[in-house]
Deep mutational scan, measured.
Amino acid sequence: GVRVRALYDYDGQEQDELSFKAGDELTKLGEEDEQGWCRGRLDSGQLGLYPANYVEAI
């Protein structure tokens, strides 16, 4: 996976979405899909989806 850092807070709206705060680091686990979602893993171990444009590569 690729380490990325959140640029903005994001509150997951669905069960399969991650929630994070600006500045949090997570691991991107795949390329974004056509809707702009990426699969990732928080350092807590939680897996889920997040909007790709909310993070930057570290």
Rank of each mutant, 00 (worst) to 15 (best):
L42P: 01
Q46L: 09
A57D: 15
R3W: 00
I58S: 09
A57H: 12
Q35D: 11
V4S: 03
N53Y: 03
Q35S: 13
R41C: 11
G1E: 13
A22Y: 07
Q46K: 09
G12C: 07
E17Q: 15
E32T: 12
L18S: 00
T27Q: 10
Q13A: 13
S44G: 12
R5Q: 09
L49K: 15
L29W: 05
K21V: 11
E17P: 02
L29M: 14
Q35G: 15
S19R: 08
E14P: 07
Q15C: 07
S19V: 06
L7T: 10
D33C: 13
K28P: 06
S44M: 03
A52E: 09
G36Y: 04
Y54A: 09
S44K: 07
E25S: 07
G48Y: 00
A52C: 15
L29N: 03
P51L: 09
R39G: 04
E31L: 09
R3E: 01
G30K: 07
R39P: 10
V2S: 11
I58T: 07
E31T: 12
S19F: 06
L47P: 06
Q13E: 13
Y54I: 11
L49G: 07
G12I: 01
R5W: 04
L42I: 05
Y54M: 15
Y10A: 03
G36H: 07
D11F: 06
Q13N: 11
G12D: 02
E17Y: 11
N53Q: 09
V2M: 15
E31R: 10
N53P: 13
R41A: 14
L29P: 00
G36S: 04
D43S: 10
L26D: 00
C38S: 08
E32F: 04
A57I: 13
Y8V: 10
G48P: 01
R5V: 10
T27H: 08
D24K: 03
Q46W: 08
Q15D: 08
Q15V: 12
F20P: 00
L47Q: 15
E56C: 09
Y8K: 15
R5M: 09
E34V: 10
Y10M: 05
Y8N: 07
W37Q: 07
G45R: 03
Y54T: 10
R3D: 01
I58L: 12
E34N: 15
F20L: 07
E14A: 13
L49F: 08
L18I: 11
G30A: 14
G23V: 01
